[in-house]
């Protein structure tokens, strides 16, 4: 503020007409900067929670990173700014204060929002394709390769690498 006043005063002694404009511009910049930093501050302190200790805070972080926000479906509960994510974080915090284990909290969420909220889905009849699908593709690829190789062996065709084809490049 001191700087602002002195520079404005300085300008005023030299160019009385422009000084008002300069002061206005400076104030505008300052105001914009304040707005910007207010936003940054807000984002950093979304909701400071009164954790009992640091271990609990780490546990909370770890747990919410394994859970998926039902609203913004590619975000974890830890990252999401959706209202429901905030409510669920609060709920998880409350449950932790009441001594619920991580499994109990996960169970609580699964009962309400289905297994969808788990980023690490358990192996069940409904998720076996999710778990072993990639393996099936690998298997299919391996079979295809094996078939092709065997065919070549049987036909006895040896593909000569044609180096001397005149194309140097």
């Amino acid at each position: 503020m001191q700087l602002l006043r002195s520079s404005a005063a300085c300008a005023r002694t030299r160019l009385p007409t422009k000084s008002v404009r300069a002061e206005g511009a400076l104030l505008r910049i300052l105001f914009a900067a304040m707005l910007f930093f207010a936003g940054v501050m807000h984002a950093q302190a979304i909701e400071p929670m009164p954790f009992a200790n640091h271990a609990q805070e780490l546990r909370f972080q770890h747990l919410t990173e394994q859970l998926r926000c039902p609203m913004c479906q590619n975000e974890t509960l830890a990252d999401s700014n959706a209202p429901i994510a905030r409510d669920l974080r609060n709920q998880i915090f409350q449950m932790m204060q009441h001594g619920s284990s991580d499994d109990q909290i996960k169970q609580y969420l699964v009962e309400r929002y289905s297994k969808f909220v788990l980023y690490d889905p358990p192996l069940t009849a409904g998720t076996w394709l999710l778990w072993f699908g990639p393996l099936l593709f690998l298997l299919a690829g391996a079979i295809a390769v094996a078939v092709v190789i065997r065919k070549r062996d049987r036909s006895g065709a040896i593909v000569e690498p044609s180096i001397e084809n005149g194309d140097d490049w």
């Binding site: 039902p70 959706a82 429901i84 409510d87 709920q91 309400r112 929002y113």
Partner: peptide
């Protein structure tokens, strides 16, 4: 507060 809605599995 939206707390009962959690029991209903409401997310929006």
């Amino acid at each position: 507060p939206g707390t009962t809605a959690i029991d209903f599995g409401v997310y929006g």
